Computed example of a mutant assay.
Amino acid sequence: MKHLESWLVRFLDKPCRYLCLKDWHKKRLIDLTEAMVYKKHQELTKQSPAQADLVMRTLRALFNFAKSEYKSCDGSTLFPYNPVGILSDKRCWNNVARKQTRLRPSQLKPFLESVESVRNHAIEYREDFSVAVCDFVEFMLFTGLRKTELLELKWQDVYLGDELYIISRTKNGVALELPITEPLQPIFKRRLKYKMSDYVFGAENRLGRVIEPKKIVKKINEQAEVSFTLHDLRRTFCSIAENLRLGTYTLKRLMNHTTCRNDVTAGYTVLTAEELKSPAEIVCNKLKEYAGLIDKADDIAILKSQISRLSKEQKMELMAAIISG
């Protein structure tokens, strides 16, 4: 059970005390009963209904694995029943609805101004951890990456000369290659200046990286008078990208979402960081436009920038399409 909690701590990025599984550390899987599972789920629900369900879904998966893996000499399983089934029998699952919150276009300006203000104050007073968190929060907005995936980004996976970086440890287990867009360049330069470990968002602690940034996030919230969570930034990026009609496969790749196994086309669609740069820049520019960092009149400049990355053949094809249209 101690190994189960260790996995959950990494997956949820929460401290052990939050999951309250310490009293199960020395128990064998076979010793867990329906009554124990039911009681533990009720206790965890008081702290977080969503995470209570996640803990029990993971426990259910472990029991299902054990049922098939561990058998006696006569072939019968050593785990004949799954005690987590009691939650379905009693209809105790919380079934928390997916959140729909995000930053509105009008909130992006005060949000980014607050990030900049908190960061400048931290730089002045040598509060390196706060600087790292502000860089991390801004990075999340302009990429839509998951919290833990980004916090675990190492310098060995950053290629500044090629303007790309690789997220090696992802939720779906598939490495993700992404472009370094214009808003990310000053962040990487600053992180390099503040480098203190193998991690891009390094910190002086047992892991060598930022672990829990919520205190600084709270400060940004208060200054901006905007209430947001880190996952709201991911939903903001995704929503704006979808509105720009980038294409389903492009958006899925930027967000690192898996596609259905029966989607044959997805299996043949391989997008590199170079090919993702133009659509990623389009999303970043729209975010900057909403934040008042660039004028809408800069659309021509943005278009020129995008065209400059096309090959000669692609430019000729574009011109032909414009003339014929």
Rank of each mutant, 00 (worst) to 15 (best):
D157S: 15
H257T: 03
K286A: 10
E43F: 05
R28T: 11
G202V: 04
Q314R: 09
A52T: 06
G173E: 06
N172P: 10
K99T: 08
V217R: 08
A266V: 11
A273W: 03
R191D: 03
S278Q: 08
K99W: 01
Y199K: 02
A122N: 08
K288H: 05
K219T: 13
M196T: 02
G75N: 05
S305G: 15
T265Y: 12
L251T: 04
L303V: 01
I123E: 14
D31S: 14
M255T: 02
K40V: 03
K14M: 10
P179K: 00
W155H: 09
K90G: 02
L254Q: 04
H231V: 00
T148R: 12
N221S: 14
K277G: 01
I282E: 14
A280Y: 05
K218G: 12
P110C: 09
Y159P: 04
E204H: 11
F11W: 10
H257Y: 04
A224W: 03
C20F: 01
A132H: 07
Q100A: 13
L151S: 09
L145D: 09
R104P: 00
Q314D: 11
A66R: 01
F228C: 09
L44T: 03
R91E: 15
H25P: 04
L153N: 03
Y81P: 01
K214E: 11
S168H: 11
E289R: 15
P15M: 07
G247Q: 05
